[in-house]
Amino acid sequence: MLGLGAYEISVITAMGVAVIFALSLNLITGFCGQISLGHAAFYGIGAYTSALLTKAGLPIGVGLLGAVILAGLVGIIVGFASLRVRHDFLAITTMGVGFLFVGITRQLDFVGGEMGVSGIPDSGLSKAGFMLFVLLFVALTILFSLHLKRSWMGYSFDAIASDEDTARVIGLDVSRYKLAAFAMGTALAGLAGALYAHNVRFIDPESFGFVESITVLAMVVIGGIGSVPGVIFAAALLSILPLWIQFFDEYKLLLYGGLLFAMMRFSPGGMAGLARRIFPSKTRGVKS
């Protein structure tokens, strides 16, 4: 279909999932400025929820919905933590949430323990059909992100990200906006996780560990924190780079680490910041 082989289809599907996942973190870290080092936990919650629901015989729609709701609920709880602790403390707390998720799923037998969940039902669509299904969600997520950025809520997020105390002084309900960011971001991560589960059809705790959290953070940071096109580009690029060139696999992590470091060291605005520096837009001013 569409002249794509099975390989291209699976690559595009994986790319789509990565884009949704990265945009979900971008909502929290990029838009609202709340750093999260444990975002893979919500991806995992979504994956496990949908996998277990559909394995119990429920349709995939219910699985996806359950994934979104449960991930979002846990996200709100973690969001409450973000009201209590800030900045570096929050980074470590969210990292802790990530480890807690892996630690618990590893020990719980009814979610498969170390062995994970295998034989997850597929979507019932063809491979190409599922790819289009994922791409539909990608499109919706992008539209949602762009809309949010230009909405009143997006501007409030922006204010909180740049200076929380000032935002509070001018009368923004900082707590409510932070919770909203966490709820939306984690729910979307749940969606991405569910799509991932139905795509690869096997999940285990290790698929949602610290490395995964860092990888998605890398996508957001390398793309440019808060920039929707930048994050989409970086997520797509970083998810296919290792597949593209087999040689990279051995050096995949070195590449990630090096890129992450170099980006922060030389261009903290990521690719988006780099692009803005190279092609300064006249209408928006040179310095954004």
């Binding site: 750093i35 980074a91 860092i214 953070l217 890398a218 924190i225 992590l253 990630y256 680490g257 922060m264």
Partner: peptide
């Protein structure tokens, strides 16, 4: 901002391990 150094440091750490 503080996250810049944090993320740079994570990147550096991963690269060092590799």
């Amino acid at each position: 901002p503080p996250y810049v150094a944090l993320i740079a440091s994570i990147g550096l750490f991963i690269a060092m391990e590799e």
